[in-house]
Design a protein around this nucleic acid. Structure first.
Length: 291
DNA sequence: GTCCAGGCCAGAC
DNA sequence: GTCTGGCCTGGA
């Protein structure tokens, strides 16, 4: 990869496997805004960044080399060799097909606390509403990061701030419904180090999963999402209704409990099961598979 | 009006 | 341990 720096702008050349639309729409992140010019604006780690693909180049606006090295390199998972990853995952035609279809999906490395709250909100919810709730929570409790492309952007609040939020505000303004108390209680547990989320990076995945599930609103599926999207556990295989449908349709050929699907996913796809999950999710959802 | 969506939780077996 | 019903909300 070659990096060319201009004012508030970086051009990345020779980046393999980077399709903003597919990264943005495979269900892992909810703060990307699609702009009319085909670019995407995102807030993460207290920074606003704009991303677009121009032929084979990736153009990053509103950033610089320092932030790129400290934040975005890891956030966009640019240290990973996706070419050999795809080779490793080419174990059957079904997955190959899904990988061609969702060409350029990457798994982002997102902030742990933000990811936990985001996926607590995602429970029995719909994508547009999840996005809306996250946006409102940020504008109510986050810090202003100034204006970019005609819109003011806000950071996601930290656990100390969100722990002090009022349930009725979360419900009335952020429209999170019954998830209101869960968000506050989980934030308190994290703030009080009842669960030390930083330590989850360094313990076995099953232990980390159990720890996460102590948080209110975090069940098996949410825990697996958090492990995959924030804790770099790419063997994690989150099973939502779509993955259930896709796996039953393409692999298992019969009605199967979610727990069994998760273990089958890890068995079939191995240490990179999380990547297989993202491709299958995108493929299944875009094609309304099994519905 | 009714149904349901990218699950979790409590209660019942 | 496995299964079931209820849950905020808002768009179809």
């Amino acid at each position: 990869m070659i990096i060319i720096e201009e004012k508030d702008k970086l051009i990345l050349k020779d980046v393999d496997n980077f399709n903003p639309k597919h990264i943005f729409e495979c269900g892992q992140a909810f703060r990307w805004i699609a702009n009319e010019d085909g670019s995407y604006t995102n807030v993460s780690h207290g920074k606003v960044i704009n991303v677009r693909k121009d032929k084979e180049d990736i153009i990053l606006l509103n950033t610089n080399r320092e932030d790129f090295e400290n934040i975005w390199m890891d956030y966009f998972d640019l240290n990973r060799d996706y070419k050999s990853l795809r080779d490793e995952l080419s174990i059957d035609d079904t997955l190959k097909n899904a990988m061609d279809y969702g060409d350029g999906i990457r798994i982002l490395n997102q902030d742990p606390f933000e990811t936990i709250v985001t996926f607590i909100i995602s429970a029995n919810n719909q994508i547009p509403r999840i996005r809306n709730s996250i946006k409102i929570i940020s504008s109510m409790y986050g810090k202003s990061l100034g204006e970019f492309m005609g819109e003011e952007h806000f950071s996601f609040p930290d656990c100390e701030t969100l722990a002090e939020a009022k349930v009725e505000d979360l419900r009335e303004f952020a429209r999170v419904g019954f998830r209101d108390q869960r968000i506050i209680d989980a934030s308190k547990m994290i703030r009080d180090k009842e669960i030390d989320i930083q330590s989850l990076f360094n313990i076995p995945i099953e232990d980390a999963r159990k720890e996460l599930m102590r948080l209110p609103g975090v069940g098996p599926k949410v825990a697996d999402c958090v492990l995959l999207f924030a804790f770099k556990r790419e063997e994690s295989f989150p099973v939502d209704v779509w993955i259930k449908r896709v796996m039953e349709e393409l692999y298992l050929k019969e009605d199967t409990p979610k727990k069994k699907i998760a273990s089958e996913g890890r068995r079939i796809f191995g240490k990179n099961a999380g990547f297989a999950q993202q491709y299958l999710f995108y493929y299944g959802r875009e094609n309304n598979l099994g519905k």
